[in-house]
Structure formats: structure tokens, C-alpha cells
Design a protein around this nucleic acid. Structure first.
Lengths: 335, 335
DNA sequence: TTGTAGGCGTTATCAT
DNA sequence: ATGATAACGCCTACAA
């Protein structure tokens, strides 16, 4: 193992003090041209890289942001969050910040992430729905970590900035579309938990059905492919006469497609199916999925931009506290 | 912002020196019961958390491992790697290590990761195929970072440990199966680049076709859904009479299914399709995908176990240098 | 424009 | 079993 190259060695080599080398790195404009060049050369020659942890310990910003995402059975980074992350991460990059993903799937990952945060390794965070646990939010708040939520804050008690889609309108569109197409016995495969997205989409479904004097029937499912299959089976058991399914997510919908086929149903002839999210693969499955599209790229960008604004107190902050993005109905083969 | 709780404050509060508190954290067995309890209580009272970066700077291990994964157009963490990561990460967890994912998609992410590694924030790495770039491997080698490759080392020059599937045998199985089923005009949608997996699967395809006096026709595709669609279009253009497709990955195969359907081909009646990887979703698409299964869980576990063995020099190291895992043909609806 | 001294929070080493 | 001191590598504040 080669011995580590430190700032001190560069200083000695370039015939200056450590401080001058430090300036060469952080405020090069404050140095005389000659000195700067000499130092730069020496750094290159010795392949000097400042040691990240030392800078942090001495008080520097990390210029690094984190994403906290919850895995599911099918994906370590579920596609919907993945696209938001990609967009946010590009935004950060454009502004010379770096970013990294923490997948919060267990205690162990949580501990790592907490260590990072309270060590100064992370300057700010974007939390995706599913990770908005009270204890976590509280910890972040009390440590003064800048945070933006993707998805609404379930409690609202911590007053974080948030970016989400208009879940209610999106779900309404989907159900109204199914009704317009002639479906009457529309069942809803809902999500699990008390997340706002779950509650709003369910409420929209119930409202629309009610407005049309149709019976609202919903069953819950894990947000996974398998969850979709199981929900369909439950539905066939309990309400075999449905002629359409609205699903909490595309993942569930794709599972539902499989479940329906297994039982001999044709989509869309026997049963129309609509999902939510418009993840990449929904366009490729058969039948391709009619779905409510969330603009993940825009969500990611807004989340990133908001976070930067929160942190940069010198700039005027024109970010809305709670952004709600419109959704679009994407009509494909399944309904 | 609450003032940071440091080891010094705990020491004062518990009436001992910093060193003793440090011991309470790292070698509790060396303390007298009473002292230990007093310190522990004080730590709890003040919600003391050791500062990660300070420990690292002072010479501690991070007990953290990293995964380096390459994103693609469809997924930030492609499903195949995702499953390996999940398995490896569980293995680490079981041994009280933590892990994190770096997605190497650009310069910016690379810089973060390099900072981490040469700061001591990462004790070892698992690199997935697609990230085995010469410059990276060289840097890791010269910094003495313990590394395990998933997928074979394309160069072989750096002598890293590696875990991969037997790509050649897997691909042979697939092609032989297609022939046994009666297909004769079997085209291969191959991958891009010079990765061993690309070369071996292609070689297997060519060999088998040759052994049966069949013409080998292959077109390259990006490893994405869209790549599959495009390859099918190219194939229909150039060799419209094919009756089977073997695809470099499931992602490509799923794209191919869509491409075929768009052009009115029925799978498997007109064209049989076989993929490679057996990612989760392949079981759910329609027709469900016949594919060559790699045991991602086992790969992940072996990679993790090997890495731990490399690092722990006290233990005898019984890891093979280059593990090659067997594959299985999973027969479903598409062929 | 450049240098000096001190501190960031922890652990290692050597004492006691 | 516990403590004192130095070291890790960098940056801030002040001085020259």
C-alpha cells in the first residue's frame, strides 16, 4: 500500500505552507499565478486527492445529497422512484452536486444512513413516499437536515417541502374513463398503508363510483407483481362479475394482467385494466397498459431544485411549499 | 440546531476520560461493569452518536461495503444486478456489515465514489459487469481496495476474484432447446461491447448452430426494452423468415416480444423467444418468458462471502478465484 | 499574497 | 481498569 499523499507533502514539495495548498484547492483565485501552478503541478505529480472525511471533519460541506428509497420484492429501486431519482440526480449534477441512493429496507441500512447524515456526509435529502416514517422525519427535523418529500407528508406535522402528483384527479380520470368506455362493475385494487397516495386514489375511485350510482368494491394488495396476481384471485373469488380493474400502481396492474390471463379472462375484452404511474415497462407488456402517468422527471427536478433553494439561504426562495403536479391518462391496449 | 454531542461531553458527564468512553463503545469488555453502565446511561441520556467521519479519520474501518452498478435506460438499478445486490447485502447484514450502492452512470458519480473509497469510507467493493473499466480496476488495484467482480474480468490482467454464471453452457442450453422444439431459423439478438458474457453467449449460439448445420444470424442491441424492439425490426427487415429468437437478456427479450406483436407475429406459434437472466418480471409478461436462469441470490452471496474472506486475513481463505455458477433453463410460454 | 496556531471528534499508544 | 498525549488531514481565523 502506497503511503497516503497528504496536503502536507504537497506543501513541502511545492515549497509553501499547507494553507496555501488548501487555498489552491478551495480559493485558487486568491493565489499568485506562479504559486498556484506550482502547487497544481505538484498535486498532479503526486496524484494528490484531498481526503474527503478530513474535509468534512474540518467543517466543509459534502456537496452531496441523498435519496431515500424503499425497496420492494420486485425491485431494489422501484421503477417509479428510479425515474425521479434519475431526474433529480441529473439536476444536481448540472449544479455540480453529487448524490447517492440509500435504500431503506431494514435497520442496518437505516443505521448507515443515520451515520452519514449526522456526520455531515450528506447535505440534504429527498425522501420518497414509503419512507416517511415519523421517527425518521423527526430525527431529520431535529438535526436541521434540509429535506424534500416526494409524495405528501402523511402527518403534515413536520412542515417539510413536498412534491407529489395530484392523485385524486389522476384516479378520477382513470375511473371516469372506464365508465365512459362502458364498464360498470369496476373494482379497485388499492394499496396498503395510510399513505396519502393510497387514500386519495381510493377516495377518488369511491367518489366517482358513487356519483354514477355504481358499487365501489376494493381489495388491498402489496405493491408488487405478485400482489396484483393475488388481488385478482381474491376478486374472482368474491366478485366474479367485474368487468374492469383499476389498480393502485402499474406493478399491481401488470400482476393483475397475469392473474386474469391465468383464469382465462381476456384483457380488454372481458376486463379492462388501468394502472397508475406509467413506468417504462408498462408500454411493453401485453396488452400494453393504459395508465395514469405521473411526470417523474418533473417531480425529480422540482424536488432537487427545491432542495437547493432551501439550502442556499442567500437566494430568494420562490419554491412552493407543496407542489402538486397534474397527471395524464395514457391510453393503450388494456382499456 | 442543537449543539453536537461529542465524546468529550459524555466523558465529562460520566466523570471519566474520553478514552474510557471510546472503550465503552469499542471494547466494552475491558471496562469495569459500573463504569460501563454509567457511560452507557450518559450516552443514552444525551443521545450521543459517535461521529462517523471522525472515527474514520482516526483510523477505524467503516465496516461498509459498496456495490458499483451501471444504470440503463429502463432502470436505475437493473433487476438482474438488483437481485444480486439484495442477496449480497443481506449477507453483509448478517455479518454486521453495511453496504451501499453506487450507480456509476457518469463522471460525477465516479468522483463521489472515488472520494469515498480513498477516504476510507468503503472497506471493499463488489463491481458488476458493465463497470469493469480498465481505469477503474487499475485505480482500485493500486489503492489496495479489496474487490470482487460479478461477471468475469474482461482483461484478467488485474487478477481480481470473480463470480459469474456459466454463460456458454447457459446459452447452449437455450439454443439446443429451440432446435429440439423444431426451430431452424434461429436468430440471436446479442449484446453490445466486449464483455465476456456477450462474447460467450454469442460463441455458444454460433457453435450450436454450426454443429447443426444451421446458419447463425445475429444482430446487436442495447440491453434495454427498446433495444429489443429495434433489433426485431432490423431482423424483420433483413431476415424475415426466422422462427425463433434467442436474446442476450430478458430485457431485450421482453422488448422483442413487443416488437414481434407489433408486426403481427404470434409468440410462440410463429416465433419462439428465449431470454437470459430470469428476472422477476419475466414470469409475468405475456407470453411468460422462457429463459436461462442465473442464480442471482447465490452469486450475490458468494461475492459477499468472498469479499469478507479476502479482507479477513486471519482466516484461511478457501474462496475460489473464479467461481462459475451453473444455469438452468426455465421453460414458460414463449418457447 | 502567504503563514501560524488551533480545532474538528475520534482512536492508538504508552503510561499509570 | 483508566488516563494523557499525540495523531488522523483538513480548514478557519487571525496574523504577517
Amino acid at each position: 500500500m502506497r503511503k497516503r499523499v497528504t496536503i502536507e507533502m504537497i506543501a513541502k514539495d511545492a515549497g509553501v505552507s499547507k494553507m496555501t495548498v488548501s487555498r489552491a484547492i478551495n480559493n485558487p483565485e486568491k493565489l499568485k499565478r506562479g504559486t498556484l501552478i506550482r502547487i497544481l503541478n505538484s498535486m498532479k505529480k503526486h496524484e494528490y486527492k484531498p481526503r474527503f472525511v478530513a474535509r468534512i471533519l474540518a467543517g466543509s460541506r459534502s456537496n452531496t445529497f441523498g435519496f431515500i428509497v424503499k425497496s420492494n420484492e420486485d425491485f431494489v429501486i422501484p421503477p417509479f422512484y428510479g425515474e425521479c431519482v434519475r431526474a433529480a440526480s441529473n439536476w444536481f449534477k448540472k449544479h455540480s452536486y453529487r448524490s447517492m441512493i440509500f435504500n431503506m429496507s431494514d435497520e442496518q441500512s437505516a443505521s448507515l444512513f443515520i451515520d452519514y447524515v449526522n456526520s455531515g456526509l450528506i447535505d440534504g435529502l429527498i425522501l420518497f413516499e414509503g419512507t416517511h416514517e415519523k421517527s425518521l422525519l423527526k430525527a431529520l427535523k431535529s438535526n436541521d437536515i434540509p429535506v424534500v418529500l416526494v409524495g405528501e407528508d402523511p402527518e403534515g406535522t413536520y412542515d417539510f417541502y413536498s412534491v407529489s402528483s395530484n392523485n385524486y384527479n389522476g384516479a378520477r380520470m382513470a375511473v371516469e374513463y372506464l365508465i365512459a368506455k362502458g364498464s360498470r362493475e369496476i373494482c379497485y385494487i388499492t394499496g396498503i398503508g395510510t399513505k396519502p397516495s393510497v387514500e386519495e386514489r381510493l377516495r377518488a375511485y369511491t367518489d366517482v363510483m358513487c356519483e354514477h350510482n355504481l358499487e365501489a368494491i376494493s381489495v388491498p394488495a402489496e405493491n408488487t407483481l405478485r400482489g396484483g396476481v393475488k388481488a385478482v384471485e381474491e376478486l374472482i373469488e368474491k366478485h366474479p362479475s367485474f368487468d374492469a380493474l383499476f389498480c393502485f400502481t402499474d406493478l399491481i396492474a401488470i400482476g393483475a394482467l397475469r392473474g386474469l390471463r391465468k383464469r382465462g379472462f381476456d384483457v380488454p375484452k372481458d376486463v379492462r385494466v388501468v394502472g397508475f404511474d406509467n413506468i417504462h415497462i408498462s408500454e411493453y407488456v401485453f396488452p400494453s397498459l393504459t395508465t395514469v402517468s405521473q411526470d417523474m422527471t418533473l417531480m425529480g427536478e422540482i424536488a432537487a431544485r427545491t432542495l437547493l433553494q432551501i439550502m442556499d439561504e442567500t437566494q430568494p426562495n420562490d419554491s412552493e411549499k407543496h407542489v402538486k403536479l397534474p397527471t395524464r391518462l395514457i391510453i393503450r391496449e388494456s382499456a
